[in-house]
Design a binder for these strands. Sequence first.
DNA 1: ACATAATACATCGTAACACGAAGTATATGA
DNA 2: TCATATACTTCGTGTTACGATGTATTATGT
Lengths: 105, 105
Amino acid sequence: MDIQLKRGFLDVCVLAAIKDGESYGYKIIKDLKPYIELSESTLYTILKRLETAEMLTVRSAEHDGRLRKYYRITDNGLKRIKEFRDEWKEMVSVYQFVIKEESHE
Amino acid sequence: MDIQLKRGFLDVCVLAAIKDGESYGYKIIKDLKPYIELSESTLYTILKRLETAEMLTVRSAEHDGRLRKYYRITDNGLKRIKEFRDEWKEMVSVYQFVIKEESHE
DNA sequence: ACATAATACATCGTAACACGAAGTATATGA
DNA sequence: TCATATACTTCGTGTTACGATGTATTATGT
C-alpha cells in the first residue's frame, strides 16, 4: 500500500491488532502482514505514540530469556477504533466522488 | 477529515476535480469542499507536484484582469485515478480487519 | 468615498510521520 | 560455527499538509 495512504490506517491497525488481547511488537507486525506491512522502526514509533496518547498500556516481561513488551488496548484505544468507523464513511464519500463517472471496464 | 487520512486522498481528489475539464486553483478548492477541505498553500503544493509527475498540464490565461492558471488532466493522471480503484480494495480489506467483531450498536 | 470581502496565486518555515539503516542481544537449527 | 529468527532501540532523512504572510485586482456594502 502506498505510504501516504498508509498514514491514516497504521495507528488504527495497530490498535486493532491488540484489541482482542495483549500482544507484542514482533507479533503485531506478523499479524498485520496480510493486511498492511510495516517495518519495526515504524511500529515502535507508533506504539510509543499510542502510549503517549493513552490508547494502550505496556508491561515488560521476560520470555525465554528475551525481553518482551506486552501492549494492551485502553478505553481510549477502543474509542479510537469506533471513531474510525465514522471516518470510513467520509472515505467512502470521497471515493465515490473520485471514481464518479469512471469507466468500469 | 483527519490530516493523516487526507494524505492518501488529496492528490487523487485534485485529479478527480479536473478530470471532466479544465479548472483552476480557487475553483478546485470550492468544488472539493463538500468532500475534503484543503487550504490554498496545500493545493498549490499538490498542483506543482502533479505537474512534475506529468499528471496534469497548465496554461496561464487572463480572466477579468486577474491571472488564472488552468489545469488539465493527462493520461498519467487518468491512470492514477484507475490505480486508486485498486488501492481502494486494499483499504476495504484493512477496514474490515479493523472493525472485525466490533459492536454495531 | 472607503472599507471589507472575495478572487487568485506564491513562498516560507514547521511539525508530523514512515522508513531504511544500523545496533544490541539471545535462541535455534543446520 | 554460522546463519536465521526473535525482539526491541535509535538516528537521520525525505515527504508532505498547513498556517502565516504577501501581492494584486475586483466586487460589495455602507
